[in-house]
Design a protein around this nucleic acid. Structure first.
Lengths: 210, 210
DNA sequence: TACATTAACGACCGATCGGTTGTATATCTG
DNA sequence: CAGATATACAACCGATCGGTCGTTAATGTA
């Protein structure tokens, strides 16, 4: 099971296809994305996919996996540079907004599109997406709880409640910025969370003023 | 142009089809919804649609129009019973949450699904949806401004900023409640806006405590 | 009554969908 | 080297897509 020569090439094209799949799915969704168009976009043939994936659902599942890794690399990892507590929590929010602002994915956010697509449709893809979103929510919640434990957020704070607010305010940027406000929604989303955190933080100097 | 007999029947079935279209589109989107399935759901024939609409896009545009009217009837109108100011603003938020909670539409929210579907796709449908969302945002903004003018919200409040927050916190209930939290997200969304408004309101007794 | 209009339908069209099959070939493994 | 394995492809399949056409019957209008 060494990874060189033929097998390495397979892995490379596999990764390239998944990257394209995630990018296209951020625009058209995982189901809206057709194998024919994906083949055209990657410069391969449609039937070649079935050497890598049993069917479309398997490709969709791997695309979700790829998007989770991308999110970990491009959003979570950079935020970890900030010191634990309320600063890291806000860094997480800012890293997400930067991800949207930089246009890493043509559709803005893979997970936003895919959530809206699969929230009503049972199946393996829905389950995988739900797990990813639950883990992300839980991740924010843990950071809130840690900030509370460090005394950087008021003890009255309900972690699940605040995590919902931070996530909702960040996520709705995707559609607002694309459909009406443009970059203004980024400012709104940033300021909303910033002021919320400052109001709950005994030492507001930990956070920027604006 | 009298409306009886044949023409009335036409109008009736037209409305019935649009109602079904909005309901189905709240789940599968306006494009994901196929004419064949819509025909089956309404008990009519596919080709019969083209007596009412030139093509699918025209039906989609009318479906958006129908959904706007439904939103006005089921969310906006009931909230108008509350006295103008911060109470009406919160009533608007609660009416929206009630709309989701009651399961009026099988997919939760027509506009959420359709926004996610069309935010990246140019065309008449996108433009119509964008206008509807802009008007809704503007509607909330005006109510915030009025509450400020009445002295029921602090003068430091930026109406566009607060409108974004209220809308985002309300909208994300749709996917959160369906994908992970269930009814808990309704509590989070309600409490988030309530506490935010109470903090900004010189007379918090205008609003419920919890 | 005569005629245009409208609602509604079944049959059918080309295009595209996800997926199958058979084949050619390059690469690993014994 | 020999045989199993893996990559990739063109050709093709039935199903479904949005949409057209021709027809029938009920209705509105002159």
């Amino acid at each position: 099971m060494t990874q060189d020569g033929r097998r390495l090439r397979g892995l490379r094209s596999r990764e390239a296809i998944l990257e394209q799949a995630v990018a296209l799915a951020s625009v058209e969704g995982l189901d809206g994305l057709s194998l024919g168009r994906l083949a055209a976009a990657t410069g391969t043939s449609k039937s070649g996919f079935f050497a890598h994936w049993r069917d479309k659902e398997q490709l969709q599942l791997d695309a979700v996996e790829w998007a989770v890794r991308q999110w970990a690399d491009r959003v979570v990892a950079p935020a970890m540079a900030a010191p634990a507590g309320v600063r890291r929590l806000f860094a997480l929010h800012e890293a997400r907004l930067r991800f949207y602002d930089e246009g890493v994915l043509p559709g803005g956010c893979f997970f936003f599109t895919v959530q809206a697509e699969f929230d009503d449709r049972p199946g393996l893809v829905r389950d995988r997406v739900a797990r990813a979103m639950r883990e992300w929510q839980e991740f924010i919640r843990r950071h809130v709880a840690q900030a509370v434990a460090q005394g950087e957020l008021a003890e009255s704070v309900d972690p699940a409640q605040l995590a919902y607010e931070i996530d909702a305010l960040g996520e709705m940027v995707v559609v607002h910025s694309r459909l009406h406000d443009g970059p203004v929604s980024l400012v709104h989303a940033r300021r909303a969370v910033l002021q919320r955190l400052r109001a709950l933080c005994p030492d507001p100097t930990l956070l920027p003023e604006d």
